[in-house]
Amino acid sequence: MTERHLLLQNDIRQIPQLADFVETIAQESNLDQSMAMTLNLALEEAVTNVIMYAYPKGSQGLVDLEAIVRKDSLVFILSDSGKPFDPTSAPEADISLDVEDRPIGGLGIYMVMNIMDKVEYRRENDRNILTMTKKI
């Protein structure tokens, strides 16, 4: 088991650092291209949500991502000290809607829930803690 840690500012321009972080883990764990991409996608969506909405507009805040790399699973623990938000209780996007009725947003969390095998939220010591597990 190895652990990796990434600390980001709540600035969307930091997203490429997340991509590098995921790429390193993907290589270490010998993930195929499709798995690496979907994993990156789920994490980008989860991290983007925190960057955009956790802290009041114009204020600085940190986004903390810890990865626990095991032989058969990857566990990502995303935490922030922003306002309470439980993505696991957000309404599910309806992906069967036609063009006209399809809302523009709401896909990010849907993808996190879809790609990860397990997503758990808890609020602890005034922090949002989202634990996402992917079997590999």
Binding site: A19, M37, N40, E45, T48, I104, L107
Partner: peptide, 19 residues
């Protein structure tokens, strides 16, 4: 090489315009 939900949103916006 890669598309996130915000990229999909651009595709959908264009698709709605076309419709």
């Amino acid at each position: 090489e890669y598309i996130s939900s915000s990229g999909l949103r651009i595709f959908l916006t264009l698709r709605k315009t076309a419709a």
